[in-house]
Design a protein around this nucleic acid. Structure first.
Lengths: 197, 197
DNA sequence: ATGAACTTATGATTCAACGCATAAAAAAAA
DNA sequence: TTTTTTTTATGCGTTGAATCATAAGTTCAT
């Protein structure tokens, strides 16, 4: 989101996290702006039974956990490194200064927030519709459109069925069965368990 | 969101809409910033079978349909007047000018977007959890917290069971039965069909 | 190459929300 | 007031995703 040189110039600090490591927890208070430099981070809620709901995967260059920077409420979801990752952080105060100094960057930031809202609108209307195939199609369609977790060269999906389940509130078995069904309808290709869309 | 005097000073134009009237449709291209002055507006998606999913109710003072102002994509959901309403509109260009002229207002706008994202995160994690009582509780809890559609004096819920169903992807019958059950547990009061929470 | 861990695959059963029907109560309109 | 419409209420059969069990295929570390 914000370019790394700018973040470093304003005192940004790198931090390495290992796969599985918790970066921050749902409900915690926030004092930093976080941006992913390298790796993959998931933004998740965990329910009473320990089941994860993945709100979004974060890719390099994207920020995460930004709500509290604006409204001073606790984190709405936790962040966990999905693979070994590098993040860069600046203080909340500095973040506000950067936005003040760069109106165009602030505009880009608003654009990012609306894009995230758009994704939520999309997924929410699909989940409310209780149609596994619709939910999965919309998710894959969105990811393809935004080149997220889909190989740009070979169209291979970089997500496991479990991860799709965790983003749609479905069970792995349901995702596996539904995607097999989508293959029969010609909506996607599966080769040795790998999905191409 | 933006105060009315400012909107009028920048050439804002009032528009009256009757209950049930479509203000804009999902997928349409957008050229205006919309703000509700009086009445109630719902922001909805309608699925293949004609079933509505209500993303949010808009209350006086709030803006709606703002995504395209930032990312130039079509509307993610349509807007329908839920009761006779008055809205005020300014052009996209003017909206951008106002934000440029008022950095603090822009900050407030970002805050609004994050609050909307927060609500989406909350509802999404509940819907993914497939627990009607959880979904309804979270929705009512959020509304109570933000004094939306709940009478501040008597705590009476201003939503029908059908509207709750349309915001949670549940069926009316399920909402009625679940809320009856919540009453038995003492989580809310029902008197002559009216809910107090 | 081998074993461990993870991911995909598939069948059988269960259960809770759906979907339909029908009616009573409340609110709005005439 | 009476009539009409909307909302709440409840019973019951159906359905489809969850759940459980089990196994085969894939990936990864040693």
């Amino acid at each position: 989101m914000i370019d790394i040189d700018t973040l470093l110039a304003w005192g940004g600090v790198y931090k390495k996290v290992s796969a599985g490591e918790v970066i921050f927890r749902e409900g915690a208070v926030c004092t930093f702006y976080h941006q992913l430099v390298e790796g993959k981070v998931k933004w998740v809620n965990i329910n009473d039974e320990g089941k994860e709901f993945i709100q979004t995967f974060i890719e390099p260059g994207e920020c995460f956990g930004e709500f509290p920077l604006f409204d001073d409420e606790p984190y709405a979801a936790g962040a966990i490194a999905d693979s070994d990752s590098v993040i860069i952080r600046i203080s909340k105060f500095t973040f506000h200064q950067i936005l003040k100094d760069n109106p165009e960057l602030h505009f880009e930031f608003s654009k990012l927030l609306t894009q995230r809202l758009r994704f939520k609108f999309l997924i929410l209307k699909e989940l409310a519709n209780h149609n596994p195939e619709g939910s999965i199609s919309s998710l894959l369609g969105y990811f393809k459109e935004h080149k997220k977790n889909i190989c740009t060269k070979c169209n291979r999906l970089q997500l496991t069925r479990q991860q799709i389940a965790d983003m749609t509130g479905l069970r792995v078995e349901t995702v596996i069965r539904t995607m097999k069904n989508m293959q029969h309808k010609g909506h996607l290709q599966i080769n040795k368990g790998k999905v191409y869309c």
